[in-house]
Write a protein that binds this DNA or RNA. Structure first.
Length: 276
DNA sequence: AAGAGGCACAACCGCACTCTA
DNA sequence: GTAGAGTGCGGTTGTGCCTCT
């Protein structure tokens, strides 16, 4: 906190930094509820907050906004992050748009604390192709398993379907892992979402009570949206030849030299999986 | 019990881009 | 066309909490 000093820096120090107090949060929430977002610098002044506009914006978007999700990322969400990161790299805000309620900051933190931790355990550069392969070959299928387990354990509350389980049976160009998540908007310019999935946002919102709690009125708007079709065909598993990546039959590709190496032994993966 | 170290997350910073007068 | 304000984004830092010794 740097708001302790007087004198020549007094004006500078009128800007408060550091953790937000409950009082500040309330001021910001009430002001935005009354006047809306935007014009953050003037908003900060008008609301009586001794914060910069940027600080107010960040606090609102990352923490106070009503539809902000808290808590651990679901396996589905983790899967989407891994997939999109392999395609786009550190484009956190872009990735966040595909995870309603999650912020770029949260995703960035997840990547740095969880994913990069795994890379450190394996002594692999998290930006290396080798690590990306490890993600695709091991962790993403494991996450898909978890998704399946979750969906089956919740019986009819399944919100995610995995189709084409035996990917090797399909032509590579058509290999598609299908899952779905509730997308508040339907991006069309990235080619990520197409028309091949079978699960609707409607199903999701009706089967996941927290959706209504989280999105309130927006939950009903979700129900008005077409079935959002999420194709993880560009999971880029197509890059890995004809290995059988089916969920039920998934096995470590023991014919791969790198996976046999000491640091990448299957046991290592399974131990790490427990840490995931 | 207490100190050290690591982890997770909130918040800040700098830069680049967009908007507006 | 341009300068300044506003905004968005990715990287980095600060800090509280938890675990281990």
């Amino acid at each position: 906190m740097r708001n302790c000093c007087k004198g020549s820096e007094q004006e500078f120090d009128e800007v408060k930094r550091g953790a937000w107090t409950g009082e500040e949060d309330n001021l910001l929430i009430h002001y935005i509820n009354s006047h809306g977002e935007g014009r953050w610098n003037s908003l900060a002044k008008s609301a009586g907050l001794k914060r910069t506009g940027k600080s107010c914006r960040l606090r609102w978007l990352n923490y106070l906004k009503p539809d902000t999700k808290r808590g651990n990322l679901s396996p589905q969400e983790q899967l989407v992050i891994l997939d999109l990161h392999s395609k786009w790299g550190n484009r956190w805000s872009k990735i966040a748009r595909y995870l309603p309620g999650r912020t770029d900051n949260e995703i960035k933190n997840y990547w740095r604390t969880r994913v990069q931790k795994q890379a450190r355990h394996l002594n692999i550069d998290s930006s290396s192709n080798r690590f990306v392969e490890a993600l695709h070959r091991f962790w993403m299928p494991r996450l898909l398993e978890k998704v399946e387990q979750t969906s089956s354990s919740t019986s009819n509350a399944s919100t995610v379907t995995i189709e084409n389980k035996s990917l090797s049976a399909c032509p590579q160009s058509e290999q598609t892992l299908l899952t779905s998540l509730p997308y508040p908007q339907k991006p069309t310019n990235e080619g990520y979402i197409n028309s091949t999935s079978s699960v609707c946002a409607t199903e999701y919102s009706s089967q996941m009570p927290e959706m209504s709690q989280l999105y309130g009125d927006k939950a009903s708007s979700l129900q008005n949206v077409d079935c959002y079709d999420v194709s993880i065909n560009e999971l880029d598993m197509i890059d890995f030849g004809s290995d059988d990546l089916s969920i039920g039959n998934f096995h470590l590709a023991d014919n791969d030299h790198w996976i046999r190496s000491d640091d990448m032994a299957p046991d290592t993966y399974w131990k790490l999986d427990e840490l995931w």
